[in-house]
Structure formats: structure tokens, C-alpha cells
Simulated assay, not measured.
Amino acid sequence: MNHILTTGRLVLRPATPQDHAGLLAHWTAQDVRRFLFDGAILSPEEITEVIEDSALSFATAGHGLWLIRENDSADLVGTAGLRPLEDLGLEIFYSLAPAAWGKGYATEAARAVVEHALGPLGLPEVLAEVDEGNAASVAVVERLGMTAFESVPGLLGPMTRYRRKR
């Protein structure tokens, strides 16, 4: 299966070990990690583990971590992917470089991943978990057609869980 996803403006390609430095720089940027990792800074070893886990997940399940780039650029715009949310199922997650904010890229990339999950992968639903204070991500998941189904405590405060069924 080809794991590259494309949209009108973006190319999403699975992360590889060659992407380590770019991913480390992206995910250690303060504005990027604010909600994604509850403010934690991932170590280089943790980035290596994420890339290795993603490669295994693509090989066995058809999903993992994609790097987002504009069609005509080699610059990293952000990331999107699917990962387990406790024992509930798979959740969509994404991050964007601040220079890419406000362009609709998060919605465009996340929509490609959700459609991949509900279409070719045949998942019955996709979940999302969003920090209560992350208004931009709430807007993204709502544009994806996801609906809230519960609130849970999180490290930075309440989190709302969303789902979109096939």
C-alpha cells in the first residue's frame, strides 16, 4: 500500500530516520509542543522511538506519523498521524509550524488522514482528544465532522474527546 497522502496543497509522507533532525526541531519548538505534548520536550531518543514505532505501524497497520509539506516545497509544515488513545481506538493528532498557522493546513492534512482511516483502512471511527484551551484544534476537529462525546481530566486541564464514525 502506498502510504503517501496528497491533498490540493499538501503532501503527507511517512516519517523516516532521515527526518529525525527536522522532527526534533519541529517538536521542540515551544508553540508547537504547547498542546501536543502537554508542554514536554521530547528527547532525541524519544524522537527516534516515535519514528521506529511509526515505521512498524505503517508496515503492520497502514498508519503512523506523516510529515506534512506543501506540494512545491521541501520545508516541513508539520505532522499528522494516528495513534492509540488508551484502549478506545485510534486518534488523529497533528502539529503545525507557526508560519503555517491560519492557512487551513491542519484541517486539510487531518482530513486526509481521517479519510484514509475511515476509507482504505476500514476503521469504524476516528477519535481526537483536545485540550479545553486549544480553540484552534477544537475548530479543526469540528470542521472534520467530529462530535464531542466526553470530557476527561488532562495534565493541563480538562480534555474533550471527539469521534467521527464511518
Rank of each mutant, 00 (worst) to 15 (best):
E129V: 14
G8H: 11
G145F: 12
L90A: 08
R33Y: 09
R9S: 03
F58P: 09
L5M: 02
L24W: 14
D31N: 13
S137L: 00
A106L: 00
S151L: 05
E86A: 15
T107P: 08
W101L: 08
E86S: 14
T7M: 02
L82P: 01
S73A: 15
L82F: 06
Y105G: 09
L5I: 03
V50N: 04
I4S: 11
E129T: 14
R13A: 15
A55E: 12
T60N: 12
P84V: 06
D131R: 05
H63S: 05
I51A: 04
V141N: 00
E46F: 12
S73Q: 13
F58M: 05
T48I: 08
L67Q: 12
R166P: 02
I68D: 08
R69I: 00
V138N: 06
G22N: 13
K103H: 15
E150C: 15
A61R: 13
R143W: 04
I51Q: 00
H63N: 01
H20I: 07
K103C: 14
K165I: 13
F93E: 09
E142A: 03
P158F: 13
A15E: 03
L90T: 00
A136P: 10
T79K: 09
P124V: 02
V11T: 14
F58G: 02
T28A: 01
V32W: 11
E45T: 15
T147I: 06
S57V: 01
E108S: 03
R143C: 06
G64C: 02
H20M: 01
T147K: 05
W27S: 05
G8L: 08
V138A: 07
M159V: 15
R166K: 13
D72E: 10
T147W: 07
A99D: 14
F149Q: 13
M1V: 11
A55I: 06
L123N: 03
L123Q: 11
I4L: 11
S54W: 09
V152T: 14
D75R: 15
L144V: 01
L5T: 01
E142H: 07
R163K: 12
G62Y: 00
S95C: 08
L127N: 01
G81S: 04
P153W: 07
V138K: 11
T16N: 01
L118R: 03
W66C: 07
R13V: 10
V152E: 12
N2L: 03
